[in-house]
């Protein structure tokens, strides 16, 4: 009988894959977005920064920052879910230097943001749910909150064009 993999090996593989997906994108780095991983569940984190302010009088997060944060969370979560099997099987190994070029990511077709409250000048969080991921198209819903998980400050739905499968 095959023994289960040591937990450090599993964690290292998954974290390397997530780092590979997120750290290569300059715009994600510019906004300062990171991802917290629990098993296969991802939470996007947007640490507050003065450069993210849209209304200096309130002050409030820029609506464009909110949209970008939700879109980044949607794309990374969608990529993560469709790459998951390849990451787990080792077909995609981000730990090997330069061995695996970054896979093609889904492309946004449309994205609709529903602004529910103004974004406060503090950290924001987001989680996405892939409602449907077909061979060509995917539909993703994403929710953003700050202090209370139940009081969303924004939510969004987007449609994405999936990259061609490499098989």
């Amino acid at each position: 009988m095959k023994r289960p993999e040591p937990v450090q090996v599993v964690k290292q593989r998954r974290d390397a894959a997530l780092t590979g997906l997120v750290e290569g994108v300059p715009y994600i780095q510019y906004l300062g977005i990171t991802f917290d991983r629990r098993g296969d569940e991802l939470t996007g984190i947007l640490p507050f920064d003065d450069k993210l302010i849209g209304n200096p009088l309130l002050p409030a997060l820029h609506g464009g920052v909110t949209a970008a944060f939700l879109e980044v969370t949607a794309i990374i979560t969608l990529s993560w879910s469709y790459l998951w099997e390849d990451i787990e099987s080792g077909a995609l190994d981000f730990a090997l230097p330069d061995a695996t070029p970054l896979p093609r990511l889904p492309k946004t077709i449309d994205f609709t943001v529903d602004y529910l409250r103004s974004g406060l000048p503090r950290d924001a969080y987001a989680r996405a749910r892939v409602n449907r991921c077909g061979r060509r198209y995917a539909s993703v819903h994403v929710e953003g909150w700050q202090d209370n998980r139940d009081r969303l400050f924004a939510q969004a739905t987007g449609h994405f064009l999936m990259p061609p499968r490499r098989d």
Binding site: V25, Y27, I28, L31, G54, H62, G63, G64, V65, A67, A68, F69, E71, V72, T108, F111, V113
Partner: peptide, 11 residues
């Protein structure tokens, strides 16, 4: 990134 387009569109 699409998000940058969103930011300028919103503004």
């Amino acid at each position: 990134h699409g998000g940058a387009v969103s930011a300028v569109m919103d503004t």
